[in-house]
Design a protein around this nucleic acid. Structure first.
Lengths: 212, 212
DNA sequence: GGATGTGAAGGGGTTCACAGCA
DNA sequence: TGCTGTGAACCCCTTCACATCC
């Protein structure tokens, strides 16, 4: 198939595949087939092949996929050829936990700015990065060429922060505040709602009628 | 429609609706219609009505939905009539950030145990809860009647922890480690992968062919 | 009149099954 | 032979449009 359009559901699985392939590479497996990838990723082989086929023809019939080459392809597809420049807005417990998360660096993310509104935090240094004032959000975003923003401010401030981020040119936001952000066309938001996820789990705990 | 089976996609939206309704209640709106809910939730009115219809007939034609009554229904459906008993396994930065997250209590979750393997942390008290040893995981889970476990241990320990949780009777796990957990039928896992989410955002930043 | 509840239509995503190629 | 790549079938979810009821 000619690479052209990639279904959103496929995009969502790409990071998972990438993780599995890196793992395979670390285990010195030069080649893997779709069945093996499916096992690692917890899906089925047909799904894996279909997903990869949207990106191009990377496999060899009768053999499988060359791991390192596929890692390169996926990384390129995900825009991870160089680290993405990330800002964290809101340096509370969650924000600081995220800043020091080692998985970011390993997976193509680089935190380049940390912003908070609390004067007691502003100016403190954490992991080599100085916490800066929310007042200066716009110039910080531009100065650091921020590509992705992680919002961990209290819910009532989240929309305001998002508006300023968008106005400053940010086109990708990960929101941990439990509010639905409204953003213009062309800006991508992903919502993280831990309490909501736990509520979904809670649903399944109920002794109930079976699902559809 | 006779309540019977609820599509997984609908279940995933229930926490969102609940949040919106609580907000509407706080704004002293006694009744809302599907258009208003859709606006708050960022979906469309047909979706809202269809979702609610899986749960029963809660609305009044020509009027809309009585907010407080709908909150009660949704809470019941999500199994939140009393707080769910949650354990946090892995008291690193992320685990401790989650423990002190006020949104849990507001939304039906109660952290009843915190477990870690680090002797330096064991015995310390945080927010009224004593950090206990991972060695005692099984008895802690049973003693506290843990219903939902949040796993924030390093990736290489996550599967082992999950196995022990399942063996102790836990049937709902929220996993923050970047590994795919394998669990028996009947155990529900939700995967939180922040780096993966950022990679999805990164994909959308690429100047590229349009999506399907 | 007005908004719900719901069959029916429409659109995607997943799975199947096999053609195609090393 | 063996595994990929993919059209087609299948299934589920979303959206539409309207009958239904307050």
């Amino acid at each position: 198939m000619t690479p052209g359009k990639i279904p959103p559901t496929t995009v969502q699985r790409l990071p998972l595949y990438l993780r599995c392939l890196v793992q395979a590479s670390a285990m010195h497996m030069p080649v893997v087939n779709s069945v093996q990838i499916a096992e690692m990723a917890g899906t089925n082989a047909a799904q894996v092949r279909k997903d990869f086929s949207y990106l191009g023809e990377f496999g060899t019939r009768g053999i499988g996929y060359e791991v390192d080459s596929l890692i390169t392809h996926l990384s390129k597809e995900l825009g991870l050829t160089e680290h993405r420049r990330v800002a964290i807005i809101g340096f509370g417990r969650l924000g600081s936990a995220l800043q020091s998360y080692p998985g970011f660096d390993e997976r193509g993310m680089k935190v380049v700015a940390v912003i908070d509104a609390d004067p007691a935090k502003i100016g403190t240094v954490s992991d080599g990065i100085t916490v800066e004032s929310a007042d200066d959000l716009e110039e910080i975003v531009k100065r650091e060429r921020v590509e992705i923003a992680i919002v961990t401010v209290p819910g009532k401030y989240a929309q305001g922060v998002a508006d300023r981020l968008v106005a400053s040119g940010v086109r990708a936001i990960m929101n941990f505040a439990p509010v639905q952000l409204v953003v213009p066309e062309g800006v991508e938001v992903r919502q993280a709602d831990v309490a909501g996820e736990l509520q979904v789990l809670s649903f399944h705990l109920n002794p109930r009628r079976t699902l559809a």
